[in-house]
Design a protein around this nucleic acid. Structure first.
Length: 580
DNA sequence: AAAAAAC
């Protein structure tokens, strides 16, 4: 447990003691990040270009596109420079965002196809939106201030549709601005704050945005707050704590917009602590995930609680498999379907490759070898389970890789939040994570994704690698595959091919295994996976056992709220208490 | 197809 805590608290802290030179450099020159050496060789103690956050935001990627080969490994040698000195982190970010507007070439324009009755015409500019629709000028002002200049494909098509109060199924690749596509119209239609009693007496929640993970909900909330600046809307990121305040009806009535994961919302509904009868807009972000078997029931329960006859529904995702689309379409009323680019195809901006590692044991040496050479931090590494995330991160730390972080849903909320903010600050060089990070998360600096464990679906693959190559930037994605992954290799290889990456010919020549065969091998693979589940780290079985024991103790404690004595986890319960 | 995530 201790090791687990140490680890999940952050590689950065760990490194302070063990990699002094790195950290000194890092801390000392943080504000001068823009002047960092061009070398990306993090482990040598040079300041890594993770602060490329800024470089990216600042520089026009147009230059890069022309001058750089798309093999990601070459990129580090030819970083664009950031011209000026900047003083504080925050200013850096802000100025960078604004500077980005100047010479930012528009995002690559994808083909857009729409289907539906009376599809509203798209707009080319945000200006055009104002001319055609009655959008609060403050909102447009905030959009400009946040650095948005021209609407992306999904924005120029999706926003008018939503502004005309039509239902929408939107499919647009990762990192192409889906969040703004629904936030702008929803907030535009929000009207006066519920708290101002004259306009909407007792109106309460009027918009609802659902996302599959806490981290994503949090990120959406941040975007929302940016757009809401200067308005007095009450925009709530649903959590245990906020849910507890809803027992007071006066509190709920003042809420204008809720961003939440489904189950949290269902819990409040069932407790009778929430009315959604005045909700006019429901958005499902990462819609295919939200319509997965595990989420579907919860989502339907939430939607059923939104009884207003004019409720508008919209679903957004980068992927929408046929079955999910069917479910989605059946929930929508006279829907319009917008597809940007090719469905289920990643961005060509992401240079993808497949790396053969014979078996699970060979992955770690391969990764360590990779990380011992120059690379572009931060790197996001995906594994298939929580214990594997923990133990891989630990192995990396033990092996001397600096600034390793770990994020999975088995960690406490605080640990998760800390990990995300380290990532946002550029303090994580290597982030090991599970599927929890696969969707929606927008870390502008991430240019390398490594699938340490083979993704379990095409959708998973597309979303994982879509953590890089965002907003027109380039990215690099490496996927390890073992013998066990063979049955699924060709499917993924086809995805690479379709999005312009190259695949070794022998992979393409693989026979497509029959269904039976695939099933059999799948079984082997699963057995193997169970076997491997704890194998990256040495003491992992012990850690896992401790974690399980701790969570059992916590549960036992919840039922018997009196006995507070024997908890090993310092802030497992203390903070939330039972105030409701 | 299966794990992860949701609480």
């Amino acid at each position: 447990m201790e090791a687990f805590h140490l680890l999940s608290r952050g590689g950065a802290k760990f490194d302070k003691s063990k990699f002094k030179s790195d950290v000194n450099l890092f801390n000392g020159k943080k504000s001068k990040a823009a002047n960092a050496s061009t070398s990306a060789r993090a482990p040598e103690g040079e300041l890594p270009p993770e602060l490329d956050f800024f470089k990216y935001a600042q520089g026009g990627q147009g230059k890069r596109k022309a001058s750089e080969p798309n093999g990601g490994a070459d990129a580090k040698g030819k970083k664009r420079r950031v011209e000026e000195d900047e003083d504080t982190e925050d200013e850096d970010a802000d100025e960078a965002e604004q500077a980005a507007e100047e010479d930012d070439p528009p995002m690559p324009r994808h083909r857009v196809t729409t289907k539906g009755n009376n599809v509203p015409e798209h707009v080319e500019t945000f200006e055009a939106l104002r001319e055609r629709y009655n959008i609060p000028s403050r909102l447009l002002q905030n959009i400009a201030q946040s650095g948005y200049k021209r609407p992306t494909g999904i924005q120029s098509h999706g926003i008018p549709i939503l502004l005309e109060h039509r239902d929408l199924a939107a499919i647009s690749p990762t990192g192409t601005g889906k969040t703004l596509s629904y936030l702008l119209p929803v907030m535009s239609a929000l009207g006066a704050p519920a708290a101002s009693s004259k306009s909407n007496p007792g109106s309460g929640v009027r918009a609802l945005i659902l996302a599959p993970t806490r981290e994503l909900a949090h990120q959406i909330h941040n975007e929302c707050l940016k757009l809401a600046q200067g308005r007095k809307w009450k925009i709530v990121l649903f959590s245990k704590a906020t849910a507890a305040t809803l027992a007071d009806k006066k509190v709920r009535e003042k809420i204008d917009l809720i961003i939440s994961t489904p189950l949290r919302l269902v819990a409040s509904l069932q407790a009778g602590n929430l009315e959604l009868n005045n909700v006019r807009h429901i958005v499902l972000d990462e819609a295919d995930r939200m319509l997965d078997a595990e989420f579907l029931e919860q989502v339907q329960e939430v939607i059923a609680a939104c009884t207003h006859p004019e409720v508008q529904k919209a679903v957004f995702s980068a992927t929408l498999p046929a079955n999910a689309e069917k479910v989605a379409m059946s929930m929508l009323r006279d829907p319009i379907r917008v597809v940007v680019g090719l469905k289920d195809t990643p961005l060509p901006l992401i240079a993808q490759s497949l790396t053969y590692v014979a078996d699970d044991q060979s992955k770690l040496p391969t990764l360590l070898q990779y990380l011992s050479q120059p690379y572009n931090p931060p790197v996001l590494i995906f594994v298939s389970s929580q214990p594997r995330a923990t133990s891989l991160a630990e192995e990396l730390v033990i092996s001397g890789v600096p600034n390793v972080d770990c994020l999975h849903a088995g960690m406490t909320m605080k640990e998760r939040e800390d990990a995300v903010s380290r990532m946002r600050r550029g303090e994580s060089w290597v982030m090991v994570s599970t599927e929890v990070m696969a969707r929606g998360m927008d870390f502008k600096g991430v240019r390398e994704v490594i699938n340490y464990d083979f993704p379990q679906s095409v959708q998973s693959y597309i979303h994982r690698i879509g953590r890089t190559g965002r907003a027109g930037r380039e990215g690099k994605a490496i996927t390890y595959f073992t013998n066990q992954d063979a049955p699924f290799l060709k499917t993924i290889a086809n995805v690479l091919l379709q999005s312009g990456s190259t695949v070794p010919e022998w992979i393409l020549k693989l026979p497509k295994p029959s269904k039976m065969k695939r099933r059999e091998m799948g079984k082997v693979k699963r057995a193997e996976a169970v076997n491997n589940a704890r194998r990256i780290g040495r003491s992992d079985a012990i850690k896992k056992r401790d974690m399980v024991a701790a969570s059992k103790r916590r549960k036992a404690k919840e039922t018997q709220s009196k006995t507070d004595g024997a908890t090993s986890s310092p802030h497992a319960d203390g903070a939330d208490g039972e105030s409701a």
